[in-house]
Amino acid sequence: MFNQVPNISYSNIHGVLESIQPLDKVAISTKVGTLIPIYRVEDHGRKKLTPVKVDPLGRVKSLQLQDVTQVNTTVGEIPTEFITFYPSGNIRRVFPLNGKLSGYWSEDNEYNLAKIISIKTMVGTISVKPIYVHFYETGELKSITFWPKERVLINTRYGEIKIKTGISFYKSGRVKSFEPDSQISIETPIGNLLAYDPDPIGINGEKNSLSFNEEGDVITISTISSEVIVVDNKGMENIFTPDVQPSRCDDEIFIIKPLKIEFHGDEVIFKYGFKTIGKSKNNSEFIIKEFTSNKVQNCNLSSCSKSS
């Protein structure tokens, strides 16, 4: 298999084989064809990753490829520089590029090298520069994670929406979640809310602030512009709003953190700060108003105005 003795790494547990560094060209047979792991680095913009990683049973977990290779997937061929596998040998993720960011090689350098890939989905053809494409073990498209500069228009039951960061899908192909690029009005089980998280946590297309069940109903949403007044059957009011806090850098600058709401059956869960409060839809009235604060004007997590 190897023309030269490869560098082999073992884990500390019982000397189990963990990785292989080929010293010459070698072909590895996979379910998606024969692939050539990297054995020489001529491009200093590439990451110095272990070319071949295996699990304790010797099954290939990931391959860093010598050259960008067209890999056949359930959504078509994708140019691939790095690929990961499930224990079954089926594709987990494909990365069209896998560059090394440094003082000499920036995110812009890597982004400029990225190619647009078109993927047909139930919300239309998504043409985007992806960081990676993720699949379920059974082959269905699980998510697409975008480069930060990328924006995509999709067609939904709520209208045409521009999204960022990424999008995830159920096995059925229906949309599971996405990240709106700007504020949009979304119908929820308690009324219309303005959905938007200016600085969502997470860097992949699977953890988005706006998510849905398979029928397309909202199950999680983040808002910086809506407040919810909950009136219980005794007439008692609870008001839930986004959280306005002074900046850690300047007490005269305020930042706004989204109010996060989840819907589980008849229960509505409000999450803000470290508090989580549940309310029943059956025993409460929900009044939605525009959220305003004299402390902030056009303030979000990444850019804030001084208090008035």
Rank of each mutant, 00 (worst) to 15 (best):
V133R: 08
I20F: 04
L97K: 03
G202M: 08
G45D: 11
C304M: 08
K279F: 14
R93G: 02
I253A: 07
T223Q: 00
E214R: 02
V175M: 10
T121I: 08
S106V: 10
L113A: 11
L101F: 12
Q183W: 04
N12I: 06
I221Y: 03
T34G: 03
H44Y: 08
I203M: 07
S303T: 09
S9W: 03
P246A: 08
P198H: 10
S19F: 01
G205C: 03
Y132I: 01
K53G: 00
S293E: 00
Y170M: 07
I38H: 02
E187M: 12
S127R: 10
Y196N: 02
L57R: 08
V52Q: 13
G173D: 09
A114P: 13
I13W: 01
L17K: 15
L49F: 02
F263Y: 10
I131V: 11
R46V: 07
R93L: 12
I83K: 01
P242E: 11
I219M: 01
I144D: 12
E81C: 06
K25Y: 07
V128M: 04
K281H: 12
T69W: 08
S211C: 10
E290F: 05
G89K: 09
L113W: 03
S127F: 03
I261N: 05
K162G: 07
L210M: 07
Y104F: 05
F135K: 05
P37Q: 09
C304L: 00
Y170T: 11
G124Y: 13
Y196M: 11
I36L: 06
K281N: 13
